[in-house]
Design a protein around this nucleic acid. Structure first.
Lengths: 338, 338
DNA sequence: TGTTAGCAATCTTTGGCTTTGAGTGCTAAC
DNA sequence: GTTAGCACTCAAAGCCAAAGATTGCTAACA
């Protein structure tokens, strides 16, 4: 059977209506609200055909139709008409990002908040690195006799710090020397280069070999792992009628309250610009009744974070995609220009 | 009417049983499980008296008794027998805290995690300062032409950092000078002294007045506000049968997922060693059906954080209090000794 | 051949009614 | 003061009927 234009149109209407109302869509409501020129009997036969094609199903015989996962997939790929954000919304995004923001953490927190507020869904965020950030400044700062704070500033103008161990009783003068060598050695290199395994540690660094290996360890840790995992608006899920079911809420919360699960979810889509997962799709972290939309943002060609929206399968995809795209555009513009 | 010893005993049994089973306690179950020497009719008349005194109530006529808020209050003050933690539990706490931990953030995260895992309730945590920490080291580190990272190390051996603005085009040499002056001026002072308003900025600092006022601003911010708010085990609430009700879960989540609310809750009890709130008790942040137990820990006479456990009114108070006390003891011992 | 009106069939939802069982309060006896 | 016995109360569960929504099917129509 062929998917005629009219079938597509009706499918789109069903999906849109179901996303809006959370109620199975009847042939009658289609003809009353949208296609007033044809009869409900005609729509009925189309719906019945769409059901046979696997795009719709009925919760029970005397109910309207509900979109299947296949329908949502077709919808996000072909059928949906992206929302245009209001100028109010766009201004809001700009206002937030024009405020001074220096650390990786702050950027991620802010972005997660903006996304959750505009979409009215739960947002997830991790910092992400492809290792292509160039080190602009790197320095150790003693905080205890045997440990130091390593501060790294990269060309995204965001900084990151980590605590490292110092060799036993390293005098302050030597720390100064070590700092000079660190600066000389690492400044201008990308993070990836800085922690490459074949790095030649020059003879002159011999005395600070221990320090260097600690620093490289910290850099590797920074590049390979996101320690910042943020979730915002976890309680937004309660607004959706299909989550009147306590077990679904529990499923949902057992993901969004666990940093390691959120990290896994976002990491796996780190390299993908925009990704839409409808239902679990094999990921054990996503409950079957949920959908996840993720986006990775970058500035100056360098990844700065992966963000996601998690919510019911009946998610307002057109709104979510528009918000993610617009937030990305504005954030990237602001971080690139400064 | 008098609260005889037998009435107290029966009340204790009712509370213990209700905490364990989450079911209204019947006269029959009391005589079967605990007081096998007296008849259920006798217990019934005692229960009826306890109800008249306001300690118990019946969900409906043909149900057993449930403790009132008054009963829980009496229970935590007089009746409960504190749990002894197993050596396994105590070893677990020690093991966690013996790992190297340097930043304020890490300590708080770890402690919140330990408390949640041992109590099986949701834990809340904020960093807290009474301003009595002595500054051991303070330094600025340039991260951009016009901003610097301020790193402060105090005698609790934990560090904290903040980004501050630098005056326009401050040369590196001057930053070095400023650092020397900062060290000279602030080292040895308590945080409270450091941000006292009547601080005399000496003539010789004149050139760095702007830097100093930024630094003092950051110190004030650090002392007055907790920016670190941690929650752990938000999904533990689902384990409790009285939270099969979606509205209660929603109430609960709307508190524990909002950092500002958690901050308010814990801040108000920051100065209190151990505090038990049963029901809202006038705090709009606490749902009426919840209880909150908080504790503030300190090392070397300096506050290091306020922690809380939030859960159903039917909370295992004896376990929670024991865990909070033991975690406090071990944490304080470890932070004091090092 | 596609569209439509009409109608029986299906199945959820709601409300009321009954039964069952747990637990109490009261009374009278010890 | 304690206890056995018993009537009373009320929630919970099961059952049934009525109401309402929506479909699929059929036959007629353009």
């Amino acid at each position: 059977m062929e998917l005629t234009e009219r079938k597509k149109k009706i499918l789109q209407l069903v999906v849109d209506d179901y996303i809006e109302t959370a109620q199975p869509v009847s042939s009658k409501s289609i003809t009353e609200k949208y296609l007033t020129t044809i009869s409900s009997a005609t729509v009925r036969s189309e719906l019945s055909a769409l059901e046979e094609l696997g795009y719709l199903y009925q919760p029970h015989t005397s109910a309207g139709r509900v979109p299947s996962k296949e329908a949502y997939k077709l919808y996000v790929n072909e059928l949906m008409v992206k929302d245009n954000l209001s100028t109010k919304e766009l201004d809001y995004i700009e206002k937030i990002f024009l405020e001074k923001t220096n650390s990786v953490e702050e950027i991620i927190k802010k972005t997660a908040k903006v996304i959750s507020e505009l979409t009215q869904y739960t947002s997830l965020a991790i910092s992400s690195h492809d290792g292509q950030e160039i080190i602009r400044n790197i320095k150790l700062f003693r905080i205890m006799p045997e440990s130091a704070l390593l501060v790294i500033v990269t060309d995204t103008k965001l900084f990151k710090d980590a605590v490292i161990e110092l060799p036993h009783d390293l005098p302050d003068d030597n720390l100064e020397n070590a700092n000079n060598l660190l600066a000389e050695f690492f400044t201008g290199k990308t993070l990836a280069e800085a922690c490459a395994d074949n790095l030649k540690i020059d003879e002159s660094f011999a005395g600070y070999k221990a320090v260097f290996s600690e620093v490289i360890g910290a850099l590797k840790e920074y590049v390979s792992r996101s320690d910042e995992v943020i979730t915002e608006g976890e309680d937004k899920i309660f607004e959706h009628p299909e989550y009147a079911d306590i077990d679904k809420i529990r499923d949902f919360m057992s993901v969004v309250t666990k940093k390691d699960k959120v990290l896994n979810l976002l990491s796996e889509n780190r390299s993908i610009k925009l990704n839409i997962k409808i239902g679990a799709e094999g990921y054990e972290e996503i409950p079957e009744h949920c959908s996840l939309v993720t986006a990775t943002y970058s500035a100056n060609g360098v990844d700065i974070g992966t963000y996601g929206v998690i919510g019911p399968q009946r998610m307002d995809y057109k709104k979510v995609v528009s918000v993610l795209e617009n937030v990305g555009k504005i954030l990237e513009a602001i971080l690139t220009n400064r």
